[in-house]
Amino acid sequence: MSSKICAVIDYGMGNLHSASKALEFVSDNTQVLVTSDPETILKADHVVLPGVGAMRDCMGEIKRLGVDQVVAEVAKSKPLLGICVGMQAMMNHSQENNGVDCLKHFEGEVEFFGNPLIGTQGSEDGVKLKVPHMGWNQVKQVAHPLWNGIEDEARFYFVHSYFVNAKNPSQVKGHGHYGKDFAAAVGQDNVFAVQFHPEKSHKAGLQLLQNFLNWDGQP
């Protein structure tokens, strides 16, 4: 049986165990490799750009290791999934760490939730909300193959203090709300990115990862 390869890009920013274990758990015939080697990444069938920690350190390592060029190459044709800071890194620019230029794959700014952050709707109206946005929140889906088999407004696990304010509404594939509206998922052609952690989001998250491994990159 010919097995496919999914590369999880390792640029030294912490815990990739979760993402790779969850991908392995849902894959039948895909080998999951955690790697920073450009050649391996460019040969893979599917590529994941994860990320945790602060944006300046992330972008610093991404540039130092040449991951920026690898991602740009991958984004031309292969199914590519950004997770959390990996999604934020794909935007134009982040306000974190006094401003950091990012990969500019998607139009938009990464902004701070604010302190204080005051709720604006439903049970959160007028309530002072904690930052980081930590826990299970709903995502309003925009039709895309990566949502297959996942109920609309299903909950996913989020941990973030900065959020994506996407400039191009047609690229928003999932809407989130925590005090303000934010992009929970963005996508264009063969690239998809999520603010939440699918690898920590139980059945819905595992389904999304399985959908990604089965995805041919057609929107």
Binding site: Q121, G135, N137, Q138, H177, Y178
Partner: peptide, 8 residues
């Protein structure tokens, strides 16, 4: 849509 309270 609101953040859920967690049970741990």
């Amino acid at each position: 849509m609101a953040l859920a309270k967690r049970i741990i």
